[in-house]
Design a protein around this nucleic acid. Structure first.
Length: 508
DNA sequence: CCTGACTCGC
DNA sequence: ATGCGAGTCAGGT
């Protein structure tokens, strides 16, 4: 069996090769020369679907159905396995032809197929987590939550479930606290933004903010993660390749792409991600990856030159768009510029910007107009892409990844506007995904060529995380930085910042 | 078991 | 009424 699977002269098609290869890797077999993964191929053809079951592939690409009943005397599992193999082998060439006619052979063969084995290996290696530290943290935070509950009940004049937005709204009504903001279903909104506003006047609002943060850390991280640590002291999560419509990876069981980093308390969680004895963690982050891609795609001269000159892009925006002059002025305006720069990639409109920055709609309108007056190429892109999506039905990344927009001509403004924003964002986020996947493939190959023990253990969209023996740190860091920065050749430089530490927090 | 509200990340 | 995800809890089926 191993001989067949590693024979380079045989063509092999699989359905969900990561699962198959993951099982083989555990047996010490490293399969080579995989010709097709029909699940991944179907994802590239239409990444907007939620799943790609074999019955869908049979129906959509072979115009056949899977068997509705199993013949007498045949084991059901065995029958379905054989059927899966049969459909996989028959659908593979059909998908390949569609990819070829879409000009998507390279994104498939040079990006997605090689990514499969890298992900299988990462899942197998896993991440070491200090479970005892998390359990201590959970116990500590639980005490603080109880103290907070007592104070909240005293202010409310009664007990209530602080974790229930409905009940929090009821308590606010009883205390005559209101903002008038409602949720989509007509409930009183107790969202973070609303609470921050109320916290100016009411202590209870700040206490609920604090309670929510701590309870989130307790339930989602401090208590959940230790249960997932296996006998090897590591968490082996799942990296999904066929979920995100833009080409990004996603992470489940657990989600290791949303480990806290922002707040001091949350950073305690991140510190529990550690290397094996004699190793360190290396974190490598792309600096401003999406904005650099935006500059490249739009060919905007001002933004492109700013990146070429190695400028601080947010400070640059603060000076050019908001007219910041002295240092004091710059600090505040840079903060604003940063929010606008991020918002632009998401096609923010005046209304959204005004609520986020806390300015009037007219002021937000002016900010956006000034922004487009400075970055003229970006305005043109924002106008052109929705038209392209309307004309072709899809837009694509720099490497040919596509996303379709079936409702971009919808008569409903909200539906149509949403698809326009998605279309504007996709080439940016999609190209970033392409580049990071190429980097993963190249770094993995380079580490292997150099016979290093350093292992890639996580990807968080624009960051790659590695575990490295201490004696390899320097060499591995140099390889990682080099391969990531040269993963794509754009009209602006790609810059990667590398950090080393004894936990994930200190490596950043 | 599903949906909505909320919060974590990029 | 800024893009892409995942998990938890409450509350209802």
């Amino acid at each position: 069996m191993g001989d067949i699977l590693t024979n380079k002269f045989l063509q092999k098609a699989a359905f969900d090769a990561k699962s198959v290869n993951g099982a083989l890797l555990k047996l010490g077999i490293r399969p080579v020369d995989l010709t097709d993964d029909v699940m991944v191929a179907a994802y590239i053809l239409d990444p907007g679907r939620t799943n790609y079951p074999i019955d869908f592939l049979a129906q959509a690409y072979l115009d056949t159905d899977i068997a509705r009943s199993i013949p007498d005397g045949i084991d059901e599992a065995a029958f379905r396995t054989a059927e899966l193999a049969d459909i996989t082998a028959r659908v593979a060439p059909v998908l390949r032809e569609k990819l070829r006619s879409n000009d998507q052979e390279r994104v498939y063969a040079e990006i997605e197929l090689p990514t499969i084995d890298v992900l299988a290996e990462m899942e197998l290696v896993g991440m070491k987590v200090d479970g005892d530290a998390l359990i201590r943290f959970a116990a500590d935070i639980k005490q603080q939550l109880e103290a907070l509950s007592d104070r909240l009940f005293a202010i409310a004049g009664r007990e209530f479930n602080i974790g229930s937005p409905k009940q929090v709204g009821e308590v606010f009504a009883e205390l005559n606290i209101e903002t008038g903001k409602k949720t989509a279903t007509g409930q009183i909104s107790t969202s973070h933004d609303v609470l921050v506003e109320l916290a100016q006047t009411y202590e209870i609002a700040q206490l609920i903010i604090d309670y929510r943060e701590m309870d989130k850390l307790r339930a989602t991280y401090a208590e959940a993660l230790p249960k997932l640590i296996r006998d090897d002291g590591r968490i082996h999560g799942c990296l999904n390749q066929t979920v995100a419509a833009t080409g990004r990876l996603s992470s489940t069981d657990p989600n290791l792409q949303n480990i806290p980093v922002r707040t001091t308390l949350g950073q305690e969680i991140r510190r529990s991600f550690i290397p094996e004895k004699g190793n360190k963690l290396i974190s490598a982050d792309y600096s401003q990856l999406e904005l650099r891609i935006l500059a490249h795609i739009t060919q905007d001269a001002v933004m492109t030159n700013a990146f070429r000159d190695g400028e601080d892009i947010h400070a640059n925006t603060a000076r050019l768009v908001f007219g910041a002059t002295d240092e004091k002025d710059l600090k505040e305006k840079r903060r604003l510029a940063k929010i606008v720069n991020f918002g632009i990639a998401y096609a923010v409109e005046a209304f959204g910007l005004s609520t986020r920055v806390g300015i009037s709609r007219a002021e937000a309108r002016k900010v956006i107009d000034d922004y487009f007056a400075t970055y003229k190429g970006i305005r043109k892109y924002m106008d052109d892409i929705p038209q392209q999506a309307k004309r072709d039905g899809f837009v694509k990344s720099l490497f040919g990844r596509r996303r379709y927009f079936p409702s971009i001509n919808d008569r409903n403004f909200t539906v149509r506007a949403r698809q326009e924003r998605e279309a504007i964002n996709m080439p940016i986020q999609g190209t970033a995904s392409d580049i990071v996947k190429i980097a993963m493939i190249n770094v993995d190959k380079a580490l292997r060529n150099e016979k290093l023990e350093t292992k890639m253990i996580m990807q968080v969209h624009d960051e790659l995380l590695f575990e490295a023996p201490v004696n390899e740190i320097e060499q591995a860091s140099a390889i990682i930085k080099r391969e990531m920065e040269t993963a794509a050749k754009l009209d602006v430089p790609l810059i990667v910042e590398v950090g080393v530490g004894d936990n994930w927090m200190d490596a950043k």
